[in-house]
Amino acid sequence: MTAMRRFLANGWLSAYAFLYVVFLYLPVIFLPIFSVNTAATPKFPLSGFTLKWYEDLPRTPALLDAAWNSLVVGVSAAILSTVLGILAARSITRYRYPGRRAINGLIMAPLVLPEIIVAISLLLVILQLGLSLSLFTVVLGHVLVSIPYSMTVLTAGFEGFDRSLEEASADLGESAFGTFRRVTLPMVAPAIISSLLVCFTISLDEFLIAFFLTGTEATLPIYIWGQLRFASKLPGVLALGTLLLAASFLLMTVAEILRRHAAKRTQNEGGLYA
């Protein structure tokens, strides 16, 4: 009742919120719509339903290579940035020391730097060092831009962690490592998995850094970029894009559910979305 009344009282605001969500989702929704359309160009009216664009995907070797590359890069970047994120988040939430805020600021900096700057500066150093561009250099770049997100997820997970839980474990005779294994790790596991998923998603979707730092091997976004030059390839790209969208949605939903689970356990609200 009261919810309904409040909704009506703020009618214009609610209507705006609704329109805003439409604005956010509408462009994204055209990808799946035109990926099952028979016409080769995306325009109205729709000409008919087909799955042939999807059926073509597994028959494209270059695409399969790109998908495999994306998987390798994504998994490596997710693991590496989460490990680095765990160390940093633990340090930031648990200890007080001079320079803590400055170091935190530096680690979070890629979040507010133009991506092109991050990409070209890494490119310059790698070329200067005489390293060859490869998927490895892409991982290096992806880890750099993923750490801030990993930190955000993990800091929220660690912050609600009551320090006396670890003291209680020590008090009951458990060693430092045993305490980490039996108390700390199970408590923060959801946040860690959530961080892995978020970082994997970022790496999977990231284009610019991969574009600059990869050698001959393409990731999925780079493959898509290459296909965009050919108008005739557009429906296939739409189909692939739809699959990528679905993957991102799925991964982020799981990450969010895990994050909430962790928040309930540590009685701590917040995280990526707050």
Partner: peptide, 20 residues
């Protein structure tokens, strides 16, 4: 002697019950 090897045990103010 670290806490885990002392013949004392503690009831914490927050109780510190392991939630998992």
């Amino acid at each position: 002697i670290p806490a885990n090897r002392r013949p004392t045990n503690m009831v914490f103010q927050s109780y510190a019950i392991f939630p998992h």
